Amino acid sequence: MPIVKTLKKSLYFGTQHHCPICQSNVRLFKPMHTTQIRLNAICPVCSSLERHRMMWLFFKQKTDLFAAHAKKMLHIAPEECLVDKFAQCESIDYLTADLNNSAMVKMDLTDIQYPDNSFDIIYCSHVLEHIPDDAQAMRELSRVLKPEGWAVIQVPILREQTYEDLSITDPQQREQLFGQSDHVRVYGLDYKERLEKAGFCVSVMPYLQEFTSEERKRFGFDIEKDDIYFCTLH
């Protein structure tokens, strides 16, 4: 373990909270400052957010991601706190991709330079809200997923119906309307239908409901709702 993480584990040690990603017992999760302050959001050791910890537990408890059979995984816009965990699993042929240089390959989700049926698993979280042609990106993700594979494609769901206006380019106006200056829309509960139009079969899983209030507090799951969009091709 890097010495910095070891020092942080000691500095923030406590029994109130637990990060399942870095296996740290800490006295607090740090607040996240966005348009609204989210308390108990950031692990002080690995910097994971609530959604990262939720997805890590979901992958371990509800999927075959870490099973012994070989599988090829595409991880879009890789979260630093999860990269090493996936990369260290010998059964995963792991590829990270992003539009910038922070990943193994540079990838435009609207024009993925890989053949059909390339990946057993795709994980893409909080990316589509940045992409003007999200429908094309969804179709591309569907195209490169193997017929027996699965994908988790997450976005922030903040309203009943998706709202977008691609003519809005001013960062301040985008932040006001879409919640962040580099977002081009705010998704609603019709997100499932948008994925289905791209060729996915979608199960909306209310995974957080499986945790008790005590467990939610311990893992820092103060978010009210963050369903998991589990996608297959049939």
Score class of each variant (00 low, 15 high):
residue 217 K to S: 09
residue 197 K to Q: 09
residue 58 F to M: 05
residue 7 L to V: 11
residue 71 K to G: 03
residue 105 V to D: 12
residue 8 K to Q: 04
residue 112 I to Q: 03
residue 183 H to C: 03
residue 77 A to C: 05
residue 230 F to M: 15
residue 17 H to D: 02
residue 116 D to P: 02
residue 4 V to S: 10
residue 96 T to E: 01
residue 234 H to Y: 09
residue 30 K to W: 09
residue 69 H to I: 06
residue 101 N to G: 15
residue 26 V to H: 06
residue 152 V to H: 11
residue 123 Y to W: 14
residue 33 H to F: 12
residue 131 I to P: 01
residue 187 Y to N: 02
residue 14 G to W: 00
residue 151 A to S: 03
residue 197 K to G: 12
residue 38 R to T: 15
residue 30 K to E: 10
residue 53 R to M: 05
residue 94 Y to A: 02
residue 52 H to L: 00
residue 65 L to D: 02
residue 114 Y to K: 15
residue 98 D to K: 07
residue 101 N to L: 11
residue 38 R to W: 12
residue 30 K to L: 14
residue 58 F to N: 01
residue 19 C to D: 04
residue 50 E to V: 11
residue 127 V to S: 13
residue 134 D to S: 08
residue 194 R to F: 02
residue 180 Q to W: 02
residue 166 L to N: 09
residue 30 K to V: 09
residue 25 N to C: 11
residue 89 C to K: 10
residue 73 M to N: 00
residue 144 V to W: 00
residue 88 Q to K: 13
residue 213 S to D: 14
residue 219 F to D: 05
residue 69 H to C: 11
residue 156 P to A: 13
residue 135 A to L: 12
residue 36 Q to F: 12
residue 188 G to C: 02
residue 13 F to C: 12
residue 127 V to F: 02
residue 81 C to S: 15
residue 215 E to G: 08
residue 50 E to L: 09
residue 180 Q to K: 06
residue 125 S to Y: 02
residue 54 M to R: 10
residue 60 K to H: 14
residue 145 L to C: 01
residue 16 Q to S: 15
residue 138 M to A: 12
residue 131 I to A: 04
residue 74 L to E: 00
residue 159 R to G: 11
residue 178 F to A: 07
residue 97 A to E: 04
residue 75 H to W: 03
residue 86 F to C: 05
residue 140 E to F: 03
residue 82 L to H: 03
residue 149 G to F: 05
residue 162 T to C: 04
residue 216 R to T: 06
residue 162 T to A: 03
residue 148 E to I: 09
